[in-house]
């Protein structure tokens, strides 16, 4: 299926606006949001747990509160946004731009190691690691 550039931009805009709308006006802490399947089934936190609540707070300008819910996600959000944005731009305009950070072995394994470490640490039930758990 070949979409025109105009349609692709429209589609992305609509998706982005609905995303912002939902996460701005509804608090994932107490609403119809889908819980993390990993946390729901095992009771442990995954490295992404707290992200929905963090996004809600970020959209309201509460960076510190968002940081409490998921520091890893908040800290790497610029990289994630840039990477996703570049991928979308390539798709929309048919370009082949690359984010060279994503081709660095140091970054790739460093980030993966950090995510696994974060995952383990935030499940430890004592100070200071329990600060990493996504609780208000």
């Amino acid at each position: 299926m070949q979409l025109k550039t105009f349609h692709k931009i429209g589609l992305i805009t609509v998706l982005l606006l609905s995303f912002v709308f939902v996460y701005y006006f509804f608090n994932p802490a107490s609403n119809f949001f889908i819980p993390c399947p990993f946390h729901y089934l095992t009771g442990f936190y995954c490295p992404g747990c707290g992200s929905q609540r963090a996004i809600h707070l970020l959209l309201h300008g509460d960076v510190f509160g968002a940081f409490r819910f998921n520091p890893l996600m908040v800290l790497t959000l610029p990289i994630l946004i840039y990477g996703l944005g570049l991928t979308l731009a390539n798709w929309i305009f048919g370009t082949q731009k690359r984010f060279m950070l994503f081709y660095s072995k140091l970054f790739i394994f460093g980030y993966f190691g950090l995510a696994i470490l974060f995952w383990i640490l935030r499940n430890l039930p004592f100070y200071p690691f329990n600060l990493l758990a996504p609780t208000a």
Partner: peptide, 24 residues
Amino acid sequence: GNPPENYLIFAILMTIFCCWPVGI
């Protein structure tokens, strides 16, 4: 020229949010 797209952004998102066994 540029290397082929390596989809690392999705690998990262997978690892954090969903299924690191696939992500790795």
